[in-house]
């Protein structure tokens, strides 16, 4: 009786809070990783600084952080190889985004069709499965021979690289659709088009967005290959050109710029996912 009274008064006393417990989590379980990642980044920067400061690696192979920063400002001010930094960046962004728009507008409908239709799957499966594991550098010469050295061959190369992940993810999105959901819609009187519009498309949307994210990532990693083709502008061109003159610091500037844009885009896609498919993983 006295025990009960005591425990009652303890719960009502805000200063003496009970010990909060929870089940042992498995995996990450939503734990915060941001501070750890930030600390890792700072540690890597410090290591870079120390390695170059004590000349453990010749500056030709690894420039100091200060040199890279100076070079970045110089490129920002004077440009590189006859074009301003913004002209290089915008040339690359234009190529990547036009390729992304083309890849998405072809890959999403075709992938959905391949997930739904025997003929679409049968006809397009072979060419896509055949070409998509090929490294873009392998078919780069063909692009040049067939399409010349202008913008077209660069954009087509990037489009081909981005198309496969987008198309395959749209297919996977259709396949992940539970049959009960389809049956439920049919028993509520859905027509073929209503079924596609209200059930199939939203169900496949999370996978499609993941495919787009992967596709754009592949696009950035193919950029340097695309800009090997007689380019005079572009971040990829800047890196390749600087490497011919062993200007390692400019190479670092180019890599840094690509990394920043790729990261920003990936983050933007995550925000888009949170906005478009807030139900993901909750159903």
């Amino acid at each position: 009786m006295t025990d009960l009274a005591r425990s009652g008064s303890r719960a009502s006393d805000p200063a003496d809070r009970p010990k909060i417990v929870r089940l042992h989590p498995f995996g990450l379980d939503g734990a915060r990783t941001g501070p750890i990642s930030l600390a890792t980044a700072l540690l890597l920067l410090a290591a870079w600084f120390l390695v170059t400061h004590y000349r453990l690696v010749p500056p030709l192979f690894l420039p100091t952080p200060q040199e890279v920063a100076t070079q970045f400002l110089a490129v920002l001010e004077d440009g590189y190889a006859g074009a301003t930094l913004w002209e290089h960046v915008s040339a690359s962004l234009f190529r990547i985004f036009s390729a992304a728009v083309i890849a998405a507008s072809l890959g999403i409908p075709l992938g959905l069709a391949m997930g739904l239709n025997r003929w679409a799957k049968g006809v397009f499966d072979t060419p896509i499965e055949f070409y998509w594991p090929l490294p873009p550098l392998a078919y780069l010469p063909l692009m040049i021979i067939w399409l010349g050295i202008g913008e077209v061959s660069k954009i087509v190369l990037l489009t081909l690289a981005m198309f496969a992940p987008v198309c395959l993810s749209a297919q996977a999105g259709v396949r992940s659709l539970p049959i009960e959901r389809v049956n439920a819609a049919l028993s509520l009187g859905a027509s073929r088009w209503q079924l596609f519009r209200t059930i199939v498309l939203p169900s496949a949307l999370p996978e499609i967005l993941t495919g787009l994210r992967i596709g754009i990532g592949v696009g950035w990693s193919t950029l340097v290959a695309a800009e090997l083709i007689a380019a005079t502008r572009g971040i990829g061109f800047m890196i390749m050109s600087a490497s011919h003159f062993l200007a390692t610091d400019v190479v670092f500037v180019g890599i840094g710029i690509i990394a920043v844009f790729a990261f920003a885009f990936s983050y933007g896609m995550r925000l888009l996912e949170a906005w478009l498919v807030p139900w993901k993983g909750k159903s």
Partner: peptide
């Protein structure tokens, strides 16, 4: 012959649209 709105179905697993 085919599913239709004249027969309403309630499934064991709920099939609500999460969005």
């Amino acid at each position: 012959a085919s599913p239709g709105a004249d027969r309403g179905v309630v499934f064991q697993k709920d099939t609500l649209l999460p969005w």
